[in-house]
Design a protein around this nucleic acid. Structure first.
Lengths: 206, 206
DNA sequence: GACTCAATTCTAACAGCGTTAGATAATTTA
DNA sequence: TAAATTATCTAACGCTGTTAGAATTGAGTC
């Protein structure tokens, strides 16, 4: 039921994208803390209030940046998975691609943590946006569940594997980017690799 | 080299503790977002500016709350570990105690995420406070490394196990408290339990 | 009891934040 | 050209963490 977008809509979408570019730019240079709505507006050549014509709130801008980031993540995972030949390799490739994406894009991880942790609180984002982000994350991770099932796991078990991999990767990424605990020579990517290999071996023998 | 604290020092310490109680109280009722310096001051019966006589910044108050929380965590882990008889049980008990502490104290987890992620940025906390918090976290987790070594792992490997357990628990806790990904019937505590059992079995046969 | 000096708290303000109402400018439509 | 809609700006509100400087409190001394 979607009709061709009018010229006006295209222009509007383009302006939104310019604002999002400004947001990403400020975000990259100043981090999440420095990415105030005013800073974003200034960089985009706007007055703060003007942004409210294109987005309903600052969090909505953040959410859209995150949404696009999750789409990129999904693409990155899919691309890596596509180069493999076996279910074992698919699981490993998907897990590592997920890990690597956030190892390479720490700001995106910041944003994810910020919105995913705070988003449910007071009227944050609203259920629609919220569900959309959840779905995008799950979609990006889905190859892990698919590969697990191909390795003989039940659907329930396959989803559990997906959740486990997500949790482990997330925890390691947190460690990687904050350096809270000394790693004693071990590297986060190596630990992720080892975790996935163990999981695959474990699935193979059940 | 530490001498008995004077009466004046004791009073000062008591007032600090009252402020920290107010902080915990606001934090419990309003969450991290609602725990503004002004809200804390009001609850403690102070004017906002008065808090700066006892703490150097709002983040310093947060940091002290977190420090005490990490001490409690260490106690909780130690207490559970003390009830066990074997190295296998110690590892399992320590991992589960860590997980359970933050499952039961979501606000403390919020605080940890907030300070641990943002703390390194612009002049946040300073290296001393920062190192102190890191050390407290590592101390709380140490029983995991100890038990791993008792199970025959090298010191390097034992520390790796500690890091892995921390990462997995952290990731699952994030999931537990935000419900970002559907868990498909699996429960986070069960997943943590399964992870630890696997790790223990894996250590046993090396 | 009055004086002093330090410890403690308050008042008032600053600059920054997200957000909103209402006026204004720019663009499209009739 | 006139009207109407779209887009942006100005100005303000109430919030935030923080600071300077004045006022208050409290203890120790003459």
């Amino acid at each position: 039921m979607q009709m061709r977008e009018s010229r006006k809509e295209a222009v509007s979408r383009h302006k939104r994208e310019l604002i999002l570019d400004a947001a990403r730019s400020v975000f990259a240079e100043e981090g999440l803390e420095g990415a105030s709505l005013r800073a974003i507006a200034t960089r985009a050549g706007y007055t703060p209030a003007a942004l409210y014509f294109h987005f309903e709130s600052k969090e909505a801008i953040y959410a859209e940046v995150l949404r696009q980031s999750l789409a990129s993540l999904g693409d990155a995972v899919s691309a890596d998975v596509a180069t493999t030949r076996s279910a074992r390799q698919r699981l490993h490739a998907a897990g590592m691609a997920f890990f690597r994406y956030y190892a390479d894009h720490p700001r995106d991880l910041d944003l994810g943590f910020y919105l995913f942790r705070g988003g449910m609180k007071p009227a944050g984002l609203g259920h629609d946006r919220d569900h959309e982000l959840n779905a995008a994350l799950e979609a990006a991770l889905h190859p892990i569940a698919e590969a697990s099932e191909a390795l003989g796991a039940s659907r329930q078990k396959a989803n559990t594997v997906m959740v486990d991999c997500f949790a482990h990767a997330t925890g390691l990424l947190l460690l990687l980017h904050t350096g809270r605990i000394r790693m004693f020579g071990a590297s986060a990517p190596d630990l992720m690799d080892a975790y996935l290999r163990d999981k695959i071996a474990q699935l193979g023998k059940e």
